[in-house]
Amino acid sequence: MGRSARYAGQMADRTDTAFTWTDGWTPVSPKLIAARRLALGLTYLLVVAGVVLLFVIPDVPRLVGWITLGVALVALGWLWWLIGRRVRSFGYAERDDDLLVTSGIMFRRLVIVPYGRMQLVDVKAGPIDRWLGVTTVQLHTAAATTDASIPGLEPDVAADLRDRLARRGEQRSAGL
């Protein structure tokens, strides 16, 4: 079968690791980096409040405050950098019969979801995401472990993807 040969060809391209991208992969929008960094920043307001408190409370030695501040700043820098890498690790590919989603740096994963197995497709966006124009598309199958979500899509790309997936799902729909 022609398609099997094509899969075989893709496999041959992949020499060393299991997660290499080949042609047809789409990265997610870099706006997701901004959205996640903004969310991180908002969380850090709490940390800032904590550090300020350390400096205001009279009994706490100054040194404790400075050390906390230093640790918080280093952690912030690391998380800031990590967000960039994590977002760039997200990618998806629409093949003829299934959708591939990959992500992760430390713990990497790749999910292959056949269109015929999709039960529903969620499109969601939180307040920050909406403001910055990024959307998450999540696929559900009858298995709870499937976990195929693609964050950081432009809203119109997400809507198109959802419609395409729904259409293909319907065409190839299978029972349990």
Binding site: D16, T17, A18, F19, M106, F107, R108, R109, L110, V111, I112, V113, P114, R117, T141, A142, A143, A144, T145, T146, D147, A148, L176
Partner: peptide, 26 residues
Amino acid sequence: TQSVRVTQGPWERALDLASVHVDSTP
């Protein structure tokens, strides 16, 4: 088969290993 996953933790990565999961209903 509901979906197929490949996962790799840091230790597996160091050894160039990965795990395959075939997802079934809960």
